[in-house]
Design a protein around this nucleic acid. Structure first.
Length: 898
RNA sequence: GGGCGGUUAGCUCAGUUGGUUAGAGCGUUGCGUUGACAUCGCAAAGGUCGUAGGUUCGAGUCCUAUACCGCCCACCA
């Protein structure tokens, strides 16, 4: 008999995952079916860094996007999920630099730009496949034939086109402004790449001596080295303390430079000393004040953040060293007042965490307001939907206060800025094709700008550049705009907003009409995962241990849109168990198919359990449909899980075992229903757990096709589950009555099981029962075999009646859903103890009756909707019946006791 | 300083049109293993949904205030 089991009793994901993935891919299932009739479903994958390694963030987006993709594909919609990788300028360059230093002990400067870029390409060719390989392990059903890389030829052309267009429109300009400078990386970074952390620093109070006088103005600063770049001291125009000093001249310590004392409303009289030193070269606020007052800008820092020549005696010194020395020298000169600890926001690099220095520098910028306006409008008028909705506010808030975007980076790895400087006329030539002469004066003495573009500039074009833009390609026509953008909320500004702006600007259309934002994955205590905390969970290890399906299911059902998720490994394990449960339920059904009789008996009607599971199936389909429409994938997954395990496996399959023994006609009927429901579940689960469902579904199909009766679900079989159709509920009416009855039956069985457990009745001991079921008696009679099997009753000693006149002596009285049950041969009954128990039960029911009575006597009865009131009335009725039964039971026990 | 999110069982989380004895997984306790599954089965204990008000016939679910935690944005030296 065991020969029928050619399936291992434990789901072995290791032998399944790789094989199935390769098969899906080779069959071309990931590519969109071409169907001009249907509007396709299109999603661009957020491109992971080409040198990256899989982390849970990737696992999250892959799981979510693959779910959407598989669902859409099964619905018969042409579906394209377009993958790719990002060149990730800074991250990749750093990695290659590090590698160079480690292996050859040379810096990038030593080998030169051209060689370094070539080395980086080599690195990309060597390691760029790792991340995509890892995405495959998760089951990502994206169309690899369309895979793109932000630095490949087509995308580079798109970037260039975009740059030139913006430049020609005057939306890109080059200028000298205060920017965020990253000394370690020696490049400018955008505002978004600077993070502020509150830290304890020192606030230094010192004297600004006034020229030709003993007087001084007290000033405070956290960065004494910037004193060297001061070009004014400012006070509030209405500050009486300093009113007489405005217009006088102050002397910069050490350098003895003369600077004016000015008045500006920006100064806060209450803060610090009430006087502010102005360093336009190294502070954003000072920069603005400097502009208002036409102050000179002095740059005291070099690119590596050592002090520049302007710092006089401190030139060449590290800025923090300078800070100390400067203060010491000022102390010696009697210019210091005091120091105090001070908490303030320190700007740090998002990458690496080094302190960012505001610095004046010549950079390229995008004039962002004209782009931001339309991007705001689409959210305001609802054309762009953001899920969850509250992020729309965050999005709008950011765009409303946005400032010009510094897009040039002093890096080597990236899209070179298509601008040439002419040494003859000094003008700039920006062109789609590399020019050989200056567009203004015709000189051939031109040189390309050394900078590259911010990586996010090319990312912003992703939804259309990947489809062939700026060319009018068939893909662009067929698949743009895309349908949905799924990504983490942490890159809403970095990426999503910029895609919207660029999409509207360059294509005149929204690049997608829905943005779905998932939350971040944290550790079990809700902390961010980081190497220093050593709390990083490696998705690859998790998949090795529990399988890709288990990880996916955990990420998908454990989260809700926009909310962070604390991942716990035990939960992954629980979902591994679920995959195994699915596997074993599948084995059971497959075996049932293999053993099922071949002859149909048309006279075989459906049993209660049949009708129940079919009705519940329809309800489930409706719920899942509704939830999917509302992007409630987590809740949908949980409902499928509960249905599969808690109803189909625990109850229906157990009932089916009984039916198999009844008659051949009944057995076949039951198998058909098992196949139908299992098939539906596998289809519904496939977007969550693609591997186990595909593997099982194929085997189920083969077993069914091998059967003489030709078993098949109404949807029919197809060559693979991944391309099978999504199940539909149809228009059948809900069979509520079957559901109600079976649930009552379950309640009765549970009540008996509980009593047996409490009374420690040997599970093998079949006991008798007398059931008084009132008007439920007629249908319940038919369920006697099921009842006795499930509750382990002696079928000979199970009596079902409408009414029981007198509780049998020595029996254990129970009630379930208004049905009275007396267990016989349940061992010695302590009539006193049971009397207490029944009394307590009765009290509870009476309390409920009281509550319901007063509820129904109040305004509820007239104000609440009729069906709600009716439901409560019904409950009251049932409670009264229940109370009546309990009273009889109680009185009987009392009678026995006396 | 502004904005947003969270606060539900010991732990991790669900609970979207407000319906009236609140759910899951893990953990805990008890019982159970010869045929789908011990990666299992049958049961049990355990929350009144941060706090205070309000709207409503009715609120975990809406409103206001408040506490705590977290996040985002912001040029007070």
């Amino acid at each position: 008999m065991s020969d029928l089991f050619d399936l291992p009793k434990t789901y072995d994901f290791k032998s399944v995952e790789q094989r199935l993935y390769a098969w899906w891919e080779s069959q071309g299932y990931f590519a969109p079916r071409s169907d001009p009739q249907h509007r396709p479903f299109v999603m661009s994958m957020p491109p992971p860094n080409v040198t990256g390694e899989l982390h849970l963030g990737h696992a999250m987006f892959v799981s979510m996007e693959d779910l959407m993709t598989r669902h859409s594909r099964m619905r018969g919609v042409p579906t394209l999920w377009l993958p790719g990788t990002d060149h990730a300028g800074i991250a990749t360059q750093l990695q290659v630099e590090k590698d160079l230093l480690r292996t050859e002990e040379v810096t990038r400067e030593e080998i030169g730009r051209e060689a370094f870029v070539e080395r980086t390409w080599a690195w990309k060719r060597k390691y760029g496949g790792i991340i995509t390989e890892q995405l495959r392990r998760l089951g990502a059903s994206c169309d690899w034939s369309r895979e793109r890389f932000t630095l490949d030829e087509g995308l580079s052309r798109a970037v260039r086109e975009a740059f030139v267009r913006l430049y020609e429109k005057g939306l890109i300009y080059r200028g000298t402004y205060l920017i965020n400078w990253s000394p370690g990386l020696r490049t400018a970074v955008s505002d978004l790449e600077v993070e502020y952390s509150e830290e304890e620093v020192t606030l230094y109070y010192f004297k600004y001596l006034l020229k030709g006088s003993d007087e001084f103005i007290p000033v405070a600063t956290a960065r004494p080295e910037t004193i060297l770049g001061d070009t004014a001291v400012a006070v509030h125009p209405e500050d009486e303390r300093f009113a007489s000093l405005v217009g006088k001249t102050a002397i910069v310590p050490i350098l003895a430079r003369e600077i004016p004392v000015i008045a500006d409303e920006y100064v806060d009289r209450e803060f610090g000393t009430g006087a502010l030193k102005i360093t336009p070269g190294h502070d954003p606020a000072d920069y603005e004040i400097g502009r208002r007052h036409n102050l000179p800008v002095i740059n005291v820092l070099r690119k590596d953040a050592t002090m520049s020549e302007a710092a006089g005696p401190y030139a060449g010194m590290d800025r923090f060293e300078c800070r100390k020395r400067m203060w010491a020298d000022m102390q010696a000169a009697g210019l210091t007042i005091r120091t105090e600890p001070y908490r303030t926001q320190i700007p740090r690099s998002q990458r690496g965490g080094e302190i960012i220095e505001p610095m004046v520098s010549t950079q390229w910028f995008v004039r962002i307001k004209p782009l931001a306006e339309p991007a705001l409008e689409v959210v305001r008028d609802g054309r762009l939907r953001i899920i969850p909705e509250h992020f729309a506010k965050v999005y709008a808030n950011w765009l409303e206060n946005i400032r010009d975007w510094c897009i040039s980076r002093q890096l080597w790895w990236g899209h070179r800025i298509p601008a040439w400087h002419c040494s003859a006329c000094g003008k700039i030539t920006v062109a789609r094709q590399d020019p050989d002469r200056c567009a203004h004066c015709g000189s051939t003495e031109i040189e390309q700008d050394p900078d590259v573009l911010d990586t996010w500039f090319s990312s912003g074009l992703w939804p259309f550049s990947t489809l062939g833009w700026p060319d009018d390609t068939p893909d662009l026509r067929a698949f743009y705009p895309t349908t949905i953008m799924e990504t983490g909320y942490d890159i809403l500004f970095f990426w999503v907003a910029r895609m919207v702006m660029m999409g509207l600007e360059f294509t005149g259309r929204l690049p997608f009409d829905t943005v779905y934002l998932h939350g971040l994955i944290r550790d079990e205590q809700g902390r961010k995962m980081s190497k220093t905390l050593a709390n990083v969970i490696d998705p690859l290890e998790v998949m090795d241990e529990f399988g890709a399906d288990a990880l996916r299911l955990t990420l998908l059902t454990g989260s809700s849109p926009g909310n962070d998720m604390n991942l716990s490994v035990p939960r992954v394990q629980a979902n591994r168990n679920f995959a195994n449960k699915v596997w074993n339920a599948g084995r059971l059904v497959i075996r049932a198919v293999q053993r099922a009789p071949a002859e149909r008996d048309p006279s075989t009607a459906l049993t209660l359990s049949d009708r129940w599971i079919l009705a519940r199936r329809v309800q489930l389909l409706r719920n899942v449909d509704r939830l999917f429409q509302g992007f409630q994938y987590g809740e949908a997954g949980r409902q499928i899980y509960e249905f599969f395990w808690g109803e189909f496996a625990d109850w229906y399959l157990e009932a089916a075992k009984l039916q198999a023994a009844e008659s051949p006609g009944r057995a076949l009927r039951s198998v058909e229903i098992q196949v139908r429901v299992l098939d539906t579940c596998l289809r519904l689960l496939h977007p969550y757990t693609p591997f186990v469902t595909e593997e099982l579904w194929g085997r189920l199909r083969d077993a069914c096709l091998a059967h003489q009766a030709g078993l098949a679900p109404p949807e029919g079989w197809s060559e693979a589950l991944i391309v099978a159709s999504w199940p539909q509920a149809g228009s059948e009416a809900d069979d509520e009555e079957s559901i109600r009855r079976f649930e009552l039956l379950r309640e009765i069985i549970r009540t008996i099981r509980n009593a047996r457990a409490e009374k420690q009745i040997d599970p093998g001991h079949r006991i008798g029962a007398i059931v008084g079921a009132g008007h439920e008696n007629s249908w319940l009679q038919e369920q006697a075999p099921l009842l006795s099997a499930f509750a382990r009753l002696d079928p000979e000693a199970l009596v079902l009646r409408e009414r029981i006149d007198a509780p049998p002596a020595g029996s254990l009285p129970l009630t379930a859903g208004g049905i009275e049950i007396y267990l016989i041969q349940a061992g010695a009954v302590d009539v006193h103890e049971e009397g207490e128990r029944v009394s307590r039960q009765l009290q509870a029911v009476e309390a409920q009756i009281e509550r319901l009575e007063s509820l129904l006597a109040g305004p509820f009865a007239t104000r609440a909707p009729a069906e709600i009131v009716a439901a409560e009335r019904k409950k009251l009725e049932q409670a009264r019946e229940e109370a009546a039964r309990l009273r009889i039971q109680r009185d009987a026990l009392r009678g026995e006791a006396s």
